Computed example of a mutant assay.
Amino acid sequence: MIGVGVMAAVDEIVFHQLLGWHSFYDRSTPAVGLVSDGLLHAAELVLIVAGFFLFADLRHRHVLAPRSAWAGAFLGLGGFQLFDGVVDHKVLRVHQIRYDVDLLPYDLAWNGAALVLLAVGVVLAVRSRHEGAAAGSAPAP
């Protein structure tokens, strides 16, 4: 949840607000685009806050596995990025990364970054699983 919310925030702040390349929904008026950005911003904040509450609960119960938490964060970051690049940009066409430019380099960079984030998450998840298995098989001190 935290990874998804953070990547949505990065997308919304950098590409929607600072660069002004697109809004979440560009197939209508600028006012509708602004409302759609506001709804995206509200959703990302809910995800981040809820994710940190769950994270705090795991820490409080002393069951937090840090590497698994990092794996989840990277999987959320990459998952949001890839979903946005494939589903929002290409399937639903609610917006593009930029307009009036050759999209191929942008699409490759966008989806390539998503794949790198996902790969980091998978590596961390596999390492976390192997460490957990090794710790579980060791005799108790």
Rank of each mutant, 00 (worst) to 15 (best):
G3M: 06
V10G: 04
F15I: 00
F15S: 01
Q17I: 10
W21F: 15
D26K: 02
R27M: 08
S28L: 02
S28K: 01
A31R: 09
G33L: 08
V35D: 01
S36G: 04
H41L: 11
H41F: 12
E44Y: 10
E44F: 08
L45H: 13
I48Y: 02
I48S: 02
I48L: 09
A50Q: 10
A50E: 10
G51N: 02
F52S: 03
F55N: 03
D57W: 13
R59Q: 13
H60C: 04
H60M: 07
H62P: 00
V63L: 13
R67E: 12
S68Q: 13
W70E: 07
W70H: 07
W70F: 11
A71W: 00
G72E: 10
F74L: 04
L75M: 12
L82Q: 13
F83L: 14
V86N: 05
K90W: 09
L92D: 05
L92M: 13
Q96A: 12
I97E: 07
I97Y: 12
Y99V: 07
Y99N: 10
L103C: 02
Y106P: 04
L108S: 07
W110D: 06
N111L: 10
A113D: 08
A114M: 06
V116M: 09
L118G: 00
L118Q: 00
A119F: 15
V120N: 03
V126I: 14
S128K: 06
A133E: 15
A134I: 05
A135S: 14
G136H: 13
S137M: 12
A138R: 15
